Simulated scan of single mutants.
Amino acid sequence: MTQQVIFSVIAFSTGKRGRIIGRTPVQARDEGHARRTAERLSARHVGVIATACVVDIEAESWGEPVVLASYGQVPDMEA
């Protein structure tokens, strides 16, 4: 079982009719990099979220994402 933690940052913009639309996720090197990137992107987007997720590479399975930082308007992760 080979596990790895994937850190990612997703910025959100406002689409038609005010819908919140996720942009392409950006992979971060580590937790600190994910948090700093999210903070920096928050100045230019309506929302940003940084997450960490454990991935089992051999089984090709993803764990539940953990929110590291959240700024502005982001979709509900429970939905």
Score class of each variant (00 low, 15 high):
residue 6 I to E: 13
residue 19 R to W: 04
residue 33 H to E: 07
residue 61 S to M: 13
residue 78 E to L: 06
residue 76 D to Q: 03
residue 78 E to R: 08
residue 10 I to T: 15
residue 40 R to A: 11
residue 78 E to A: 07
residue 15 G to M: 06
residue 73 Q to K: 13
residue 41 L to Y: 11
residue 60 E to M: 11
residue 77 M to P: 10
residue 70 S to L: 09
residue 79 A to D: 08
residue 8 S to I: 03
residue 23 R to V: 03
residue 75 P to M: 01
residue 54 V to K: 12
residue 45 H to L: 01
residue 48 V to A: 09
residue 25 P to W: 11
residue 10 I to E: 02
residue 19 R to A: 15
residue 35 R to E: 03
residue 32 G to K: 15
residue 43 A to V: 09
residue 51 T to F: 04
residue 60 E to N: 14
residue 75 P to H: 02
residue 42 S to H: 07
residue 29 R to Y: 09
residue 7 F to M: 05
residue 54 V to L: 12
residue 41 L to T: 06
residue 44 R to T: 08
residue 32 G to P: 08
residue 47 G to C: 06
residue 30 D to H: 15
residue 57 I to K: 10
residue 53 C to Q: 15
residue 69 A to H: 06
residue 11 A to D: 03
residue 17 R to S: 15
residue 15 G to I: 08
residue 52 A to V: 04
residue 17 R to W: 14
residue 75 P to N: 02
residue 65 P to H: 03
residue 21 I to A: 00
residue 50 A to N: 02
residue 46 V to T: 11
residue 36 R to L: 12
residue 55 V to P: 00
residue 52 A to Q: 13
residue 14 T to R: 14
residue 17 R to L: 15
residue 38 A to P: 05
residue 71 Y to A: 03
residue 62 W to A: 13
residue 1 M to E: 11
residue 38 A to C: 02
residue 37 T to G: 01
residue 7 F to R: 02
residue 16 K to D: 10
residue 30 D to G: 10
residue 50 A to F: 04
residue 9 V to T: 03
residue 30 D to W: 14
residue 24 T to W: 05
residue 69 A to N: 07
residue 18 G to M: 06
residue 45 H to Q: 05
residue 19 R to G: 12
residue 28 A to Y: 10
residue 2 T to L: 12
residue 64 E to Y: 00
residue 62 W to L: 13
residue 50 A to P: 01
residue 30 D to V: 14
residue 37 T to M: 13
residue 78 E to K: 05
residue 23 R to S: 09
residue 22 G to S: 12
residue 75 P to W: 00
residue 12 F to Q: 00
residue 3 Q to I: 07
residue 3 Q to R: 12
residue 6 I to A: 10
residue 36 R to W: 07
residue 43 A to I: 07
residue 70 S to W: 00
residue 37 T to K: 13
residue 62 W to G: 04
residue 27 Q to T: 09
residue 55 V to T: 09
residue 31 E to Y: 06
residue 6 I to L: 13
residue 60 E to V: 09
residue 40 R to P: 00
residue 63 G to K: 06
residue 61 S to N: 12
residue 58 E to W: 11
residue 66 V to W: 00
residue 77 M to W: 02
residue 3 Q to C: 04
residue 69 A to S: 14
residue 46 V to K: 10
residue 13 S to A: 06
residue 10 I to H: 03
residue 25 P to T: 09
residue 54 V to W: 06
residue 12 F to I: 01
residue 71 Y to E: 04
residue 31 E to S: 13
residue 29 R to V: 15
residue 14 T to A: 11
residue 18 G to I: 10
residue 26 V to G: 01
residue 22 G to A: 14
residue 60 E to L: 11
residue 69 A to R: 10
residue 33 H to M: 04
residue 77 M to S: 05
residue 77 M to F: 03
residue 44 R to G: 05
